[in-house]
Design a protein around this nucleic acid. Structure first.
Length: 800
DNA sequence: CACGCTCTGCCTGCG
DNA sequence: GCAGAGCGTG
């Protein structure tokens, strides 16, 4: 039996991956060892991740391995033909062939893929499912936090936490800190809850326990106070069996560091580790990956130092900048071809980011059309800016060239959205606001969740204090404080204190109200034990009369949100098996869901969001608004050159979201905090060479009849827009890539027809099915047996 | 204990 | 300019 030569095998893989560029292919096929992929904006990063994971699962080390594969002479001939002409078979026909070469294929559940958002993880799983089928669901794909929760619950016995620990969000944590500060009677103006929270977060990021933090921070009074608060804070979390978001990472790292059994388990389990958006990881996350990946050292990190925009939140760009120092044997792949934007957009964005000093250095290029130059328009003030947007958007959509959903408006601060929204609503421009509040951050939703959490865990003081007087039951802050005091002094759970309220003199006055509350919670708890999350929400609403707090027109939105919560509970129950849809499962899911996760690409309206929220997204048209000094760069982030570089990266991220057209606006005058400032155009715009952008300044108007016809109004102010030609900039571009010639339209055949194939010879059509704009034939060949071929590539001829 | 008035402070924010 | 915190009064 003949053996397949390595070169033929590799040729077949190369054919299969010819949809990728060379660099992408390199990243997909690199097998063992550390791998650093610097992936520029729009360079097909997700494609690489998906292909790499599916490659590991399907073929393992097939590309490089010397494993012998024997075939018969006929098969060998066919494969040699296929090696020479990849179009002999459609791409979808390759996997069964390539699978015969598989060597050391990796089971899906031994791959760990970490992403920045749940949405990104979902996307990877979804695309993977299309390639490898339902097994895709077995891979460990998720955010840092969701993976940590999974590990912490799995190894709960090895930690001081229960299997069902709860997760406090920032709002919960802030309440705890505020409470502690009050209790400790700390009235130092500099020690705000925000400051303490930041300090604790940084300490956890550096893996410091409260005691360790205390030892290291004896220097200043301020820090000593923080240490005291940190102690009390951590105690309160422990008492409630709760973790904050930083704890999820920290506790997992500590578990891996200190527990050999768990560490060995993880290091042996995960043969391949992949981390997306590596430029945004912090120190604790870096350690987490290191502990897990140190077994096989098969760690791949993907990121772009030019898109690092979360330093203010503790992200360490150093992680990506020094990856090859951590792993001197790391393979480095640079993805510089941008498939998203026009040449004009990429050239302008490159010119801007080139001003940054601390970067690895790479130059994005695009083979797309040149497109229009990014256009900068300066308006008089915010109102005029908003009206300009309305006009331009109507102009873009009037001939149906673009739909509303193709258009995004990006800004530096959330506050800029208010005036835009007001004017868009008045002008009837369909729009939606992304971010701002997460759905689960709305007060009414949090109230319901607090009930659910408290039913689930009677130690949860934060949730308890939220619901004790919602709806109003005449139990105020003073009573809550007393309950707390008694519970601390008597070493009783606070719910126990409520149950025995009549025993405590201080609670005599509110005894009847407390008793009523106690009965309510008891019966709801019993109900919760036997019902699904959505039924529990219903019951809570019914029994508490919560909806009475939401009467009137002004509360319509809030009532809708409560309904929405019920829908999401129902959705959760549908998604999970009977018996799996538990209250604690639901609570966990909603703790880790964000707004961007819910962004619906298909709703036909203009989408508005901050530049930060836009990371990872793309839109045909982008309006980057408010590009002014004192706003972008933000004065709070312009103190050091380092801060300024982060702002520049932020502007770069904004620009590279645009696929075909980028509009930039700025205002002469802007009201900030009730004061009108006159601002210069942002330095970031000035840093782009003039010939790479088109500046159309604030000018009196040109009348546009089409708009008036359509909308029946003449815009109050319209600005002159130069008719603009695309002109090649000083840079010369390579000719656009040649498209593969479209194959000739094949002749159609029906079952029973006799046909002739270039390689397989004569055969009879068994069936013909239309398949993705093509026809899939099943053919019984006289010599080579039954085969499935796509019409476009089979080049069948009628047999004579 | 609840409500309403005044005062303050303000950027970006994954999970 | 506005939302949330904090205080004073009914």
């Amino acid at each position: 039996m003949p053996e397949i030569e390595l070169s033929l095998k590799q040729q077949l893989f190369d054919n299969y991956y010819s949809v990728l560029n060379d660099k992408q292919k390199e990243a997909v096929l690199a097998y063992g060892g550390p791998l650093l992929v610097i992936a520029g904006a729009g360079s097909g990063k997700t494609t690489v991740l998906v292909n790499r994971i599916s490659h590991l699962i399907n073929y393992g080390n097939a590309y490089n391995s010397n494993k012998k594969v024997e075939v018969n002479a006929e098969e060998l001939m066919l494969l040699q033909q296929l090696g020479k002409d990849k179009r002999l078979f459609p791409r979808s026909a390759y996997p069964p062939i390539l699978k015969t070469f598989a060597d050391d294929a990796c089971p899906p559940d031994r791959i760990l893929a970490i992403t920045f958002t749940n949405k990104a993880a979902g996307e990877i799983k979804e695309r993977l499912e299309q390639v490898i089928g339902p097994r895709a669901r077995e891979i460990w794909a998720g955010t840092f936090h969701s993976i940590c929760v999974r590990l912490l619950r799995m190894f709960a016995d090895e930690t001081s936490y229960g299997k069902e620990f709860i997760i406090y969000d920032q709002d919960d944590c802030k309440k705890i800190i505020t409470g502690i500060l009050k209790e400790m009677e700390i009235d130092n103006e500099e020690i705000t809850p925000k400051y303490v929270m930041n300090t604790i977060s940084k300490a956890k990021n550096a893996l410091l326990t409260p005691s360790e933090f205390e030892e290291q921070n004896q220097g200043s009074e301020k820090r000593r106070v923080c240490a005291k608060v940190f102690h009390a804070y951590q105690k309160q979390l422990n008492d409630a069996d709760a973790m904050d978001f930083d704890d999820l990472i920290l506790q997992t790292v500590l578990l891996l560091r200190d527990n050999e059994r768990v560490r060995n388990y993880c290091q042996n389990k995960f043969r391949f580790v992949l981390v997306d958006e590596y430029q945004d990881t912090n120190h604790a996350q870096y350690l987490l990956m290191k502990y897990i990946a140190d077994g096989y050292r098969n760690i791949m990190v993907v990121g772009d130092d030019d898109q690092s925009i979360y330093k203010f939140r503790g992200a360490a760009v150093e992680n990506i900048l020094s990856f090859d120092k951590q792993y001197p044997d790391a393979k480095i792949v640079l993805l510089e071809q941008n498939y998203r934007s026009t040449k004009s957009i990429i050239t302008a964005a490159n010119a801007l980011i080139a001003k940054n000093m601390s970067r690895r250095g790479k130059t994005l290029w695009s083979d797309n059309e040149i497109g229009r130059l990014p256009r900068v328009t300066q308006l008089e003030n915010q109102e005029k800016e908003a009206l300009f947007l309305v006009d331009e958007i109507n102009r873009l959509t009037v001939g149906n060239d673009y739909k509303y959903k193709d258009i995004a408006i990006l800004y530096r601060t959330k506050a800029q959205a208010n005036i835009l929204e007001t004017i868009f609503t008045k002008s009837g421009l369909p729009h939606r606001l992304l971010a701002g509040l997460r759905f689960y951050d709305h007060a009414e939703v949090k109230d319901m969740i607090a009930y659910l959490r408290f039913l689930h865990n009677k130690q949860d003081f934060v949730s308890f204090s939220r619901i004790i007087n919602v709806p109003r039951r005449g139990i105020g802050q003073a009573t809550v404080e007393k309950i707390r005091e008694i519970s601390t002094e008597q070493h009783l759970d606070f719910f126990e204190v409520i149950a025995r309220a009549n025993e405590f003199v201080d609670l005599k006055r509110s005894f009847s109200k407390l008793s009523e509350f106690y009965q309510l919670i008891q019966s709801l708890t019993e109900f919760a034990e036997e019902h699904s999350p959505s039924e529990i929400v219903h019951e809570v609403i019914d029994r508490t009369g919560y909806m009475l707090t939401l009467v009137g027109d002004e509360n319509e939105e809030r009532r809708k949100n409560v309904d929405e919560l019920i829908s999401s509970a129902v959705f959760f129950e549908e998604k999970n098996e009977e018996g799996e849809a538990t209250l604690s499962g639901f609570l966990e899911e909603i703790a880790l869901v964000t707004d961007v996760d819910n962004y619906d690409k298909n709703a036909n309206s203009v989408v508005m969001m901050t530049v930060h929220a836009a990371k990872g997204l793309e839109f045909p048209i982008v309006f980057l608004v408010g590009m002014e000094e004192n706003l972008f760069p933000s004065p709070q982030s312009s103190n050091t050159e380092e801060d300024l570089e982060e702002e520049r990266r932020l502007a770069y991220v904004a620009m590279t979201r645009a696929k075909s057209q980028l509009f930039i606006t700025c205002c002469h005058h802007r009201m900030i905090y009730g004061k009108t400032n006159s601002n210069d155009i942002s330095r970031f715009v000035r840093e782009i060479p003039e010939e790479l952008i088109q500046i159309s300044l604030y000018q009196p108007e040109v009348y546009r009849p089409r708009l008036e016809d359509r909308y029946g109004y003449k815009p109050s102010t319209v600005y002159k827009v130069n008719s603009f030609e695309t002109r090649p900039s000083a840079n010369s571009y390579s000719a656009a890539g040649t498209k593969p010639q479209s194959p000739q339209k094949p002749v159609a055949f029906a079952a029973g027809d006799r046909v002739s194939h270039g390689i397989f010879g004569l055969g009879t059509i068994i069936s013909a099915k239309s398949y993705a704009a093509d026809t899939l034939y099943e053919i019984e060949f006289d010599k080579s047996g039954r085969k499935k071929l796509m019409a476009t590539y089979a080049k069948l001829k009628p047999a004579k």
